[in-house]
């Protein structure tokens, strides 16, 4: 289990992480979601003992990371693809790490096969493409076959094929019962891989919930109406007790009524409309709205997430 307690990290006057507390439960994939600069990487580096917190602490199975014996066998971390000497070969990079934690050298080739890097084992790290460097970073994380994984933006900069591959790998690792904390700034990515979600913005906790709950609360849909007779449509809707509001482009948005109900109302009153359609605020929009408003929501006990709007 990974725990973070009242973690604060300041860089001079800037606050990267602000009184952040959460727990990552074992045996599932927890998504760590936040826009770029929200403090995800800093939090993960503090957990790893690389970054020194201003206050608070992170623990892995109840102990600070630096106190773990042979930590690579307990926690695998993917924090940055380029934490490799460019002049060292793929194989030697992993072989060195294996020695440091008394991991049998046979694991090096096993891990290379797992991430599909066997053919470039002798190649120097400088010659790797971004996708291969990413795979090497994952190989380093998986080398000790650890039960806990910390993956910081593993899909960043990958092509669609690489993204599919990593999704599959994460799912496979989760199926093996590992505890996985995977960060991303993409909500859609989290919806595909995570079962639990921790959302932060400006270093503060915004949501700590299951992915299903987050989707249920945030992916609201609405009926969009474009019409030259704005006033009449509004009157008709109001008279029927349906709430309407003005969308960002001037269209009317109706929440709480079905497409059929709205269509019948309009037909009954013979109003001219140019469009009546069903729209869904995507999770991505819900997430963006949540994090964009993070300053206003930060003191609310239970923020009511408003539905997103189509542009």
């Amino acid at each position: 289990m990974i725990e973070v307690h009242h973690l604060t990290k300041r860089y001079g006057a800037a606050v990267a992480v602000d009184e952040l507390s959460f727990q990552v439960r074992p045996g599932q994939v927890t998504g760590f979601l936040g826009p770029n600069g929200a403090g995800k990487s800093t939090t993960m580096r503090v957990i790893m003992g690389l970054c020194r917190p201003t206050s608070g602490y992170g623990l892995i199975d109840g102990r600070p990371y630096p106190e773990l014996e042979r930590p690579l066998r307990q926690v695998g971390a993917f924090l940055e693809a380029k934490a490799v000497h460019p002049g060292r070969s793929v194989y030697h990079h992993l072989a060195g790490l294996a020695k440091s934690n008394r991991i049998p050298e046979s694991r090096v080739n096993e891990t290379l096969a797992l991430v599909g890097l066997q053919t470039v084992a002798r190649k120097r790290a400088a010659g790797l493409s971004l996708g291969m460097a990413q795979r090497l970073g994952l190989a380093a994380a998986l080398l000790g076959n650890p039960p806990v994984l910390l993956l910081d933006e593993p899909v960043n900069g990958l092509d669609p094929e690489g993204i599919l591959w990593i999704r599959g790998l994460i799912r496979r690792l989760a199926d093996e019962g590992r505890t996985i904390l995977v960060s991303s700034h993409l909500m859609s990515e989290m919806a595909l891989t995570a079962s639990h979600l921790i959302v932060i913005g400006r270093g503060r906790l915004l949501a700590d919930t299951t992915i299903d709950d987050f989707i249920a609360r945030n992916s609201r849909s609405f009926v969009r109406i474009r019409t030259p007779e704005q006033e009449r449509v509004r009157d008709v809707l109001t008279a029927a007790g349906v709430e309407a509001r003005r969308g960002p482009d001037g269209a009317i948005e109706v929440v709480g009524a079905s497409l059929e109900q709205v269509g019948e109302l309009i037909g009954r009153h013979h109003v001219t409309v140019h469009e009546v359609s069903m729209r869904s605020a995507s999770l991505e929009e819900a997430f963006m709205q949540l994090t964009a408003d993070s300053v206003e929501y930060r003191d609310d006990a239970g923020p009511a997430f408003p539905a997103g709007r189509m542009g």
């Binding site: 690389l50 690579l72 490799v84 000497h85």
Partner: peptide, 17 residues
Amino acid sequence: SEFSTGTIRSSLAAVPD
């Protein structure tokens, strides 16, 4: 080179003391 190449992060992940 540990610092200039960023290898220090993987080194300290392996030997955090």
